[in-house]
Simulated assay, not measured.
Amino acid sequence: MNHTQEEANRKAKPVAPKVKELIERTQSIILATTDAEGNPNSSYAPFVQLDNTFYILVSFMAKHTKNLADGRKASIMFIEDESATKQIYARERLTIETTPSQIERDSETWNTIVAKLKETHGKVVDVIADMQDFILIALQPVRGSYVNGFGSAYFVDEKLDILEHRNDVNHQSK
Rank of each mutant, 00 (worst) to 15 (best):
K11Y: 10
L68C: 07
A90D: 11
K159R: 09
R25C: 10
I137M: 15
G71M: 05
D70Y: 02
N41P: 03
D81M: 03
A62Q: 06
E82W: 10
T34I: 14
S152I: 00
I135P: 03
N39G: 07
S43R: 01
N111T: 05
M131T: 11
A90Y: 07
M131L: 15
A84L: 13
H3M: 08
E108F: 07
I162S: 09
M61S: 08
S101P: 04
P17C: 03
E6G: 00
P46R: 10
R72E: 06
A32M: 06
V142E: 14
S59N: 04
I79N: 10
G151R: 06
R105C: 06
R166Y: 06
V127P: 02
K123I: 10
G151T: 01
D157E: 08
M131Q: 13
M61P: 00
T112D: 12
A115S: 15
Y154N: 05
Q49I: 01
N52T: 06
S107C: 07
A45P: 07
D81F: 02
K159E: 13
Q132Y: 10
H121P: 08
T112A: 13
E164H: 09
I96W: 01
Q132K: 15
E108S: 14
Q87L: 11
E7Y: 12
K18C: 10
D161W: 00
N111M: 08
S152D: 09
M1Y: 03
K63G: 11
R10M: 12
R166Q: 14
K11Q: 12
A32K: 05
L163S: 08
V124E: 11
K118R: 14
S173G: 12
A45C: 07
R91I: 00
N41R: 07
E21T: 11
E108D: 15
K123F: 08
K11M: 13
A129I: 01
A62V: 00
L94H: 08
N111W: 04
I113V: 15
K118D: 05
E21L: 10
D130S: 12
D133I: 00
K63C: 02
A36F: 05
R105D: 02
R91P: 10
A36V: 08
K11I: 00
L160P: 12
V127N: 10
A84E: 12
Y89L: 13
S75H: 05
H165I: 07
M61D: 10
D126W: 03
V127C: 05
G38D: 05
A115E: 14
D81L: 06
T112H: 12
T98E: 01
P40L: 04
P141K: 03
M77V: 09
L163P: 07
K116Q: 14
A69C: 07
A62S: 13
A62H: 11
T65M: 05
L57N: 09
F60E: 06
H171E: 14
A62Y: 00
N2Q: 09
K159I: 00
K18W: 04
T98D: 04
E37L: 11
N52Y: 03
G151A: 05
T33Q: 10
E37G: 09
T85F: 10
T120N: 13
D157R: 05
M131F: 13
F150L: 08
K123Q: 14
V15C: 07
L68N: 02
V124L: 13
T95K: 11
E24F: 00
A8T: 04
M61H: 12
E97S: 14
Q49Y: 00
E37F: 04
